[in-house]
Design a protein around this nucleic acid. Structure first.
Lengths: 204, 204
DNA sequence: TTGCCAATGTAAGCGGCACAAACATATGTA
DNA sequence: TACATATGTTTGTGCCGCTTACATTGGCAA
């Protein structure tokens, strides 16, 4: 019973236990550390303590590993946004702003992963599961915006405004990550979010 | 004189003539064809008809080649935006919208290159020339927005609105490339641009 | 318990790539 | 004409993605 599941140094077991999960975690960690291009499956294998061929028992190829890492991340983004929205009363502008802030915070906290989620130059553009998760997330935004407008979620203007909000928040996230303003503190993110959430830019 | 500079099949010259330019063009072509990850320097060498070691007489490493490709692209984006703005009278909302449309058109026309311009996970975030070109481009936007507001380009609100516009256009460009709306034709891009350019989203 | 099978690991090797010598050829200029 | 320099090739190294053949393990049926 002593040292049952613990991997005592040197006492490696042939079977890993949860290699799949460990690999996904290792890849996520490496992506965040070295960027989406600056890592290799081989390095993740070293982290997990297995041979470089082991991953191919769990994933078809490198692309599939990345897909799963992205899929997990998209789930976390969605859950975080849902929680952020739930922290404010329905119909309020604050609820809309909190949604956007949650999105931006994710980008700031896990920049390389966030970048990878939207840099899918691979074949994942047609992946049904990924698309569904993304749609669910956008659905949250539409719902919150529709609440604020007092219309049904099918309303075209709710969709339009939700999309415009998404564009704004998405664009700001990337420009921020790329430091396109070179650290200029010219914007009050929270205030701008409130204004955009309310449907207009600040007037003079 | 006959066949002076033309590369007659089999009659290869030892010196290439403009390998640097040809490589940049080859890389640009490959990036647009296969995506930012789906190409190799070696493949570009094959296109240019030289050995895989030749590029290192002109570029320090792969990263520097990509930097230059991106730099050229950023120049074209800037010039295109300037031309688009010049096609409309100063102060008009149409001028603002044309700027944004030019940006979006670039993204649509050269999607992979556009993506690469803003996926710099390499060390190019601190590159002075790149930053300057980007600043110049943003300067165009600020100027056009300031004109419309009737204020100086140093005005904080001009900057703020210009940035908000950039965020929106940038975000829409990426979401469009990633097909996040799955082809849903729910937005009238031109109209939305006009509204955002004027400083507010369409009211019911 | 025993015996076998499927799951899951390793070892070795292939081809491709980025990059580094060392060497070859062309070009411009004294 | 001679030489320095720029620009190309050949050859080689090490890493990586991925494959194939083989080893080990755990679970299940008899």
């Amino acid at each position: 019973m002593a040292g049952d599941k613990s991997l005592i140094k040197g006492k490696k077991k042939y079977h890993h236990g949860d290699l799949r999960g460990q690999l996904l975690e290792a890849v996520r960690h490496l992506v965040e550390k070295n960027g989406a291009d600056g890592f290799s499956i081989a390095e993740a294998c070293r982290l997990a303590g297995v041979s470089t061929a082991a991953p191919y028992k769990h994933f078809k190829d490198r692309s599939e590993i990345l897909r799963d890492v992205v899929f997990l991340a998209m789930g976390r983004l969605r859950d975080g946004m849902q929680a952020a929205a739930d922290a404010h009363p329905p119909g309020t502008v604050a609820r809309i702003a909190a949604l956007g802030q949650s999105y931006i915070d994710f980008a700031r906290t896990e920049p390389e992963l966030f970048r990878m989620m939207f840099s899918q130059t691979d074949g994942h553009r047609d992946d049904a599961e990924l698309a569904e998760t993304g749609d669910n997330t956008f659905g949250i935004v539409i719902g919150v915006v529709a609440d604020h407008l007092g219309v049904a979620v099918e309303d075209e203007e709710a969709k339009l405004r939700a999309y415009a909000l998404w564009c704004f928040v998405h664009g700001h996230s990337f420009l921020m990550l790329d430091d396109k303003l070179h650290g200029e503190k010219m914007i009050d993110e929270g205030q701008l979010l409130l204004a955009v959430g309310a449907g207009m830019l600040p007037q003079r």
